[in-house]
């Protein structure tokens, strides 16, 4: 699946996007955040407070309890500040 990052999540991870293949036990958004957090200090820094991270699957907002399912693109970003 393709992961895309925005704002300070992108800066802390040091990548705008990447393709990953999480293990089968990663089923929910929460699982994915936990798995990513363990991938290195940059991920740990970006996801230190996973509860504040907003997630969208295929361009739609989702909750952390939601399943990842057959997501093509998962986006991780801070709370939005547009308008």
């Amino acid at each position: 699946m393709k992961l895309v990052y925005f704002a300070w999540v992108r800066e802390r991870i040091g990548l705008a996007e990447e393709t990953v293949e999480p293990p089968a036990e990663v089923r929910s958004v929460e699982d994915l955040l936990g798995w990513l957090k363990g991938r290195g200090p940059n991920y740990d820094s970006a996801l230190a407070a996973p509860e504040v991270i907003r997630v969208a699957i295929d361009h739609e907002h989702v909750d952390h309890a939601d399943p990842i399912g057959a997501a093509r693109e998962v986006a991780l970003f801070p709370p939005m500040t547009g308008g």
């Binding site: 969208a56 970003f77 939005m80 500040t81 547009g82």
Partner: peptide
């Protein structure tokens, strides 16, 4: 304001890039 995926960052007069605006 709360759902559209936009993020603001400040660029300051002194030439530095400030922080991301907090929600």
């Amino acid at each position: 304001k709360t759902r559209a995926p936009f993020w603001k960052r400040e660029h300051l007069k002194d030439g530095t890039t400030g922080g991301w605006v907090e929600s």
